[in-house]
């Protein structure tokens, strides 16, 4: 029975499907320790008032992309070439213009 190629192929396919299902189960598993670590990190963010991830530390506008002023990538010259590789992989910051016409009720 096992000598039939279809049995072997279907068995391998079923194994691969089981592997796929396992990844979904693994992703859904509760991870108490990991959850506690994320909570601790979040608490640290709150305590220190952090605003950015420490992913790209080479330039100030890549270390704190959310805080960088809109001109920082062109700080030396309007047409200056980008110094840091991350700069070319990072999109320009998306800040919504706050309406400055608003009147102050106070």
């Amino acid at each position: 029975m096992l000598s039939r190629p279809s049995t072997l192929a279907l068995l391998l396919l079923a194994l691969a499907m089981a592997g796929f299902a396992l990844t979904l189960v693994d992703a859904a598993l509760p991870r108490e320790q990991r959850k506690a670590e994320v909570e601790a990190t979040r608490a640290l963010v709150g305590q220190l008032g952090l605003t950015d991830l420490a992913l790209f530390t080479e330039a100030r506008y890549t270390r704190h992309p959310s805080q960088a002023d809109l001109h920082s990538a062109f700080q030396d010259h309007p047409l200056a070439l980008e110094h840091f590789p991350t700069g070319s992989l990072l999109p320009p910051p998306r800040h919504e213009a706050v309406d400055r016409e608003a009147t102050l009720p106070d």
Binding site: D52, P65, P91, P93, R94, E96, P105
Partner: peptide
């Protein structure tokens, strides 16, 4: 944020929502 921008015209308020959106767009971009 609107009040701050009006009262202090040389200031730039950055909202938490904007920070979160910046990160969402960074990873989309990458």
């Amino acid at each position: 944020a609107l009040k701050l921008a009006a009262a202090l015209p040389d200031s730039r308020p950055i909202l938490r929502d904007e920070v979160l959106r910046t990160y969402a767009s960074i990873f989309d971009w990458r």
